[in-house]
């Protein structure tokens, strides 16, 4: 035990207060961690739809490739110039205290001017899938940030649980022992002093 520890009742009370604070903090952090884990599981279930989306995208891409070949690459490019690009905005939102990105679709791509109905439909379907992919990407980013936060909380809880609280408890135990030892010494000293005083008073009677 460190020799720098102040052995006093005040120090013991201070350490006990710190232990109480650390334990309360640990409990709160554990609760927050559990909440985050629950949220992460919910997001993980939603992210599982990536496989289905990828299959859907593969199908649409195959149709797009077919359209590219049927219409011709140059024509495909000139058709694409009739499409107004979509507008999206990336904003930050707090999810259980973790700042995660959120992608808002402000405007869908304007495909109504496409003079080929097949390409128009294809563009709409393609945007539906890409829009879902964008939302999925935001969820994946949120999941990643949540996992980072959970990892960070885990490290704090572990350090509280395995290092700070045991050290403080050990310190408190040491101070308590030292204080008890001191009080015993004090008691003995007082007793000795009392005996000596008694002895003195007894001797003075005979002199």
């Amino acid at each position: 035990m460190s020799t720098r520890v102040t052995i006093s009742r005040g120090a013991l009370m201070e350490i006990r207060r710190r232990i109480e604070l650390a334990e309360r903090g640990k409990e709160i952090l554990e609760m927050r961690r559990d909440q985050l884990i629950g949220e992460a599981f919910r997001l993980a279930r939603e992210v599982e739809e990536r496989r289905r989306l990828e299959e859907r995208l593969a199908l649409i891409m195959r149709r797009a490739q077919l359209a590219y070949l049927l219409v011709g690459p140059r024509e495909f490019r000139s058709y694409s110039q009739l499409v107004e690009p979509p507008k999206v905005r990336i904003v930050s939102k707090s999810l259980l205290g973790v700042i995660v990105p959120r992608i808002m679709e402000l405007e869908r791509p304007e495909v109504s001017r496409l003079s080929n109905p097949a390409l128009r439909r294809l563009a709409e379907e393609l945007w539906d899938v890409i829009g879902e992919f964008i939302r999925l990407a935001a969820k994946e980013a949120a999941l990643e940030l949540l996992c980072e936060e959970i990892g960070y909380l885990n490290r704090i809880v572990n350090s509280l649980e395995r290092r700070l609280i045991p050290e403080l408890m050990e310190e408190a135990h040491y101070i308590k022992l030292m204080l008890e030892e001191r009080s015993i010494e004090e008691f003995i000293r007082v007793k000795k002093l009392r005996d000596r005083l008694r002895e003195r008073s007894w001797l003075s009677r005979f002199t």
Partner: peptide
């Protein structure tokens, strides 16, 4: 005709051909 149609589409989309 192909080139003209292409040009019309590009110009209608606000781009130069």
């Amino acid at each position: 005709l192909e080139l003209v149609r292409d040009a019309l589409r590009s110009l209608a989309g606000g781009a130069r051909y």
